[in-house]
Design a binder for these strands. Structure first.
Lengths: 219, 219
DNA sequence: TGTACATCAGTGAACGCGCGTTCACTGATGTAC
DNA sequence: TGTACATCAGTGAACGCGCGTTCACTGATGTAC
């Protein structure tokens, strides 16, 4: 009766398309209106499919919501882990500056210049700051692995930092990145600038330099 | 038929109590579940009043939501403005360190140790990062005045900073403060520590010192 | 190769619960004369 | 001072819309023999 819960990539294109179109529409609408604020009919309408197909493919609204997360998490996590690990294998060990710059740059570019990440990351922020049905999934599969890797790398480049201090510093770096995304409207009002590429690059540089000074030199 | 829309403080106690109890319950539930996720019946049930009284006192759910904001904004804004302005009048001009420490300390204490602010600020964060019915109210009446005052004070203590740089620095400071509140759960998971008073004080010191180094000395 | 049946994605219409809101009401407290 | 009426806060029950979900169905594509 109902299709197996395997991933879209395992199915032929024609079959995947309805499923994928629902996921795409759901991602945008959930990110704009939240879980409770989004209506299944709006999703299916935006996707150009029948209302019943959400239940056919996902067995309900809640599971569709979870599936939106399951679809994107692996790629996003791996992208960030690569940014933390730095240049492909070998080479000399990363410096603190390389680490922070690479992480901040990757994170920010991902957030502002990739349409898929922008919507999806809004969903992630919502879920983390206001735990909902996907909180555990997001934390376990994405946030903790990335932050642990960042913490390890930070402790490697700055062996004088203990783990507690490193965790606080990571909070400071990530807090800045997220704030400049989430408080866009307010920052635009304050600065009178739109979030165009040059301004975003400026923000990225600011966060990197502010954070490098904030973390400070050894000693 | 319907009561005038004046503030609770202007009414005798017995009349204000139903109204105030609805506002109290609404603040908690809206902050936990969001606007769309909160059900009027749950609010009136928690307040111990009749369902119809929300419409009687507030002419509907949406206006109740706005009223929750209108009630708290003035006191919160003034508290922050005082923290920015520093010691009552006269005295020598603030140093950068005094300014940042006072602001961070006040903000954090407010967020973690005052039960009312905690719930209310969650609502504010929601509204700012995902503009809803109260976005303009919150921005115009609270966020912009506070950030402008902070920006002015920062430019006074560090005349070498231009306004654009000051705005970015303020984003960095506030971003950290908010992140350590909103990502509590994740930070607890990372650090293995609960948000008790000593840990919160530690965070406050960390943000202050990280930010002072981040803003940097003149030149 | 043809036939009968199973299985699939997808559909249109309806169901029924939960929600915000409305309505007609009560009982207490002014207020005019 | 007493009487008639107006105005208030607050209520219980019902209304009716919007929502997620279900149901019986279609038509296309395997698959067994």
């Amino acid at each position: 009766m109902s299709p197996a819960l395997d991933t879209a990539s395992q199915r032929p294109d024609s079959e995947a398309s309805t499923r994928a179109r629902i996921l795409d529409a759901a991602e945008v609408l959930f990110s704009e209106r939240g879980y409770a604020g989004t209506v299944v009919r709006d999703i299916t309408c935006a996707a150009g499919v029948n209302v019943a197909s959400v239940n056919y493919h996902f067995q309900g609204k809640r599971n569709l919501y979870l599936e939106v997360f399951r679809r994107r998490i692996p790629a996003l996590r791996e992208g960030r882990l690569r940014a933390i690990r730095g240049q492909p294998a070998g080479g000399e060990p990363q410096t603190l500056e390389e680490l922070v710059r690479s992480f901040v740059d990757h994170f920010i570019r991902d957030l502002y210049f990739s349409r898929t990440s922008t919507h999806f990351m809004n969903l992630v922020f919502r879920e983390v700051s206001q735990p909902g049905p996907a909180f555990e999934l997001v934390t376990e599969e994405m946030i903790l692995p990335v932050q642990r890797a960042f913490c390890d790398a930070l402790c490697r480049t700055r062996p004088d930092l203990n783990r507690d201090e490193a965790i606080l510093c990571i909070g400071s770096v990530i807090g800045q990145i997220i704030h400049f995304l989430r408080a866009r409207e307010v920052i635009s009002l304050m600065s009178g600038r739109r979030f165009t590429r040059p301004f975003v690059d400026r923000i990225s540089r600011h966060i990197t330099e502010f954070s490098l000074r904030g973390i400070g030199g050894p000693g």
